[in-house]
């Protein structure tokens, strides 16, 4: 009885909170994400072209080399305190590219330097990006296993 009353009150309050909440500017946010995300990808394309045309890398190697360059750049900008400013402007535009992944590795590593090199930098480095590896690698193995199963059956 008390529970039902509380639930009803909570629901009523949630509606009030939603009604009075300041709104995000959807259009502006998405335009900025599009612009910055697109530009990061263009930079990636330039690097890929450089590695495949000038350095004669294969497609896969060129893509890997591009990733490494972008991650280096992101680490540098994060260290200089510039990447969080880009992120403030671009939101997902600088989170979704591989540079955002790098930022989420570098930022906690820097933040927890004071807690030591092992349990600070070492342990906290993947406190945000760790899940990406867990789910990325985990699901890739499942894909491999399913493909294996299909091979056996087929």
């Amino acid at each position: 009885m008390q529970d039902a009353k509380n639930r009803k009150e909570a629901q009523r309050y949630a509606e009030l909170v939603a009604r009075l909440a300041p709104k995000s500017e959807m259009g502006q946010g998405m335009a900025r994400a599009f612009l910055v995300g697109g530009l990061i990808c263009v930079l990636g394309q330039m690097l890929t072209d450089f590695f495949s045309m000038r350095m004669r890398f294969g497609a896969q190697s060129a893509a890997t080399a591009t990733s490494i360059c972008l991650i280096f750049l992101s680490a540098l900008l994060t260290g200089l305190g510039l990447y969080d400013r880009i992120g403030k402007f671009a939101g997902a535009g600088s989170i979704v590219p591989i540079t955002g992944f790098a930022n989420s590795v570098v930022a906690p590593a820097m933040e927890f330097r004071r807690e030591g090199l092992v349990m600070g930098v070492g342990a906290k480095m993947f406190s945000l990006a760790g899940p990406v590896l867990v789910y990325g690698i985990g699901s890739s193995i499942i894909v491999g296993l399913i493909a294996f199963a299909l091979e056996v059956i087929g």
Binding site: P22, S24, G29, D84, G87, K88, S94, I95, G100, A107
Partner: peptide
């Protein structure tokens, strides 16, 4: 920030509330 939210250099956006 470091206890409740995110590292200072993480490039995330703050919500309006």
């Amino acid at each position: 920030e470091r206890q409740y939210r995110a590292p200072l250099e993480l490039g995330n956006q703050r919500t309006p509330t």
